[in-house]
Amino acid sequence: MTLQPGTEQLVAEVAAAASDALAEDIVGIDVTGVLPFSDAFVIVTADNPRHLRGVRSAVQDEVHAALGRSPRVEGDENSDWLLLDYGDVVVHIFLPEARDYYALDSLWGRSPRVFLNLAAKIN
């Protein structure tokens, strides 16, 4: 499957915002046709709780500025995993231990990865 252009743009905006906020291990996964509620996941890691909140804010602000979209947020300020639900794209922001524990990368290992051109953002 391939992502629709609007979904692809949202994934790109989310990944760029997360990268700008210095999130690590940014992965896009195409779950089109596999899940009825989403077309893609973006999974990222933040170093600590403060960084997790910063990544969340950066993604929300940049996506809203670029596309006028706001997510439904799951998790609270003290969580080790925040979820931003944009409908067609779900963003998972983890602390390292939680990412290792839930292992979404492995769980969706057979789903195609989405190419994220983050090199263009590094100067």
Results as ranks from 00 to 15, higher is better:
Gly6Pro: 14
Asp47Ser: 14
Arg110Met: 03
Leu3Lys: 11
Leu82Ala: 04
Tyr86Ile: 11
Ile122Ala: 15
Asp85Ser: 12
Arg113Asn: 05
Leu104Thr: 01
Trp108Gly: 08
Thr45Ile: 07
Leu83Ile: 15
Ala98Lys: 02
Asp105Lys: 02
Asp30Gly: 07
Val55Lys: 00
Asp25Leu: 05
Gly33Tyr: 12
Val114Met: 06
His64Leu: 06
Asp30Cys: 06
Pro36Leu: 08
Leu95Phe: 11
Ala12Arg: 13
Phe37Lys: 00
Val42His: 09
Val11Phe: 14
Ala23Leu: 07
Leu118Tyr: 12
Pro36Lys: 05
Gly87Asp: 10
Pro112His: 02
Ser106Tyr: 00
Leu95Thr: 06
Val89Trp: 15
Ile122Asn: 11
Arg56Tyr: 01
Asn48Gln: 08
Asp61Phe: 01
Gln9Phe: 08
Gly87Tyr: 07
Tyr86Arg: 09
Ala98Leu: 02
Ala46Lys: 06
Ala119Trp: 03
Glu24Arg: 06
Glu8Met: 07
Ile43Pro: 12
Arg50Ile: 11
Gly28Val: 14
Asp105Ile: 00
Ala103Gly: 06
Ile43Thr: 02
Leu10Ala: 13
Asn123Ser: 13
Glu74Arg: 03
Arg72Val: 15
Leu3Pro: 13
Ile26Met: 03
Ala18His: 06
Ala46Gly: 15
Gly54Asn: 05
Ser38Ala: 15
Asn78Asp: 10
Pro49His: 04
Phe37Arg: 01
Val31Leu: 13
Ala103Tyr: 01
Val91Asp: 04
Trp108His: 06
Gln9Gly: 09
Asp25Arg: 07
Leu95Gly: 09
Leu67His: 13
Val11Tyr: 13
His51Arg: 03
Thr32Arg: 13
Leu22Gln: 03
Ala21Gln: 05
Ala46Ser: 14
Trp108Cys: 08
Leu67Phe: 15
Leu52Gln: 04
Ser79Ile: 00
Ala120Ser: 14
Glu97Cys: 05
Val91Asn: 07
Leu82His: 01
Phe115Gln: 10
Glu24Pro: 03
Pro112Trp: 03
Val27Gln: 02
Arg56Gln: 06
Ala12Asp: 14
Ser70Cys: 06
Val44Ser: 14
Leu107Val: 13
Ala65Met: 09
Arg72Asn: 09
Gln60Val: 10
Asp61Glu: 03
Glu77Met: 00
Leu116Ser: 15
Leu116Glu: 07
Tyr102Ile: 09
Leu104Cys: 05
Ala40Leu: 09
Ala46Met: 11
Glu77Gly: 01
Ala103Asp: 12
Asp105Phe: 02
Ala17Asn: 14
Asp47Glu: 14
Val91Pro: 13
Gly54Thr: 05
Val73Gln: 01
Asp47Tyr: 05
Ala23Arg: 00
Val11Ile: 11
Pro36Ser: 08
Asp30Gln: 04
Phe94Cys: 09
Pro49Ser: 09
Arg99Met: 01
Glu13Ser: 13
Val42Pro: 12
Asp25Met: 02
Ala103Leu: 07
Glu74Phe: 10
Ala18Gly: 11
His92Ser: 12
Ser57Asp: 07
Gln9Ile: 09
Ala40Gly: 06
Ala16Asn: 11
Ile29Cys: 03
Val59Arg: 00
Leu82Trp: 02
Ser19Val: 01
Val59Lys: 00
Gly28Cys: 12
Asp61Thr: 02
Met1Gln: 04
Phe94Tyr: 11
Val63Lys: 06
Ser38Glu: 07
Asp80Cys: 12
Val44Asp: 04
Gly6Cys: 11
Val14Asp: 12
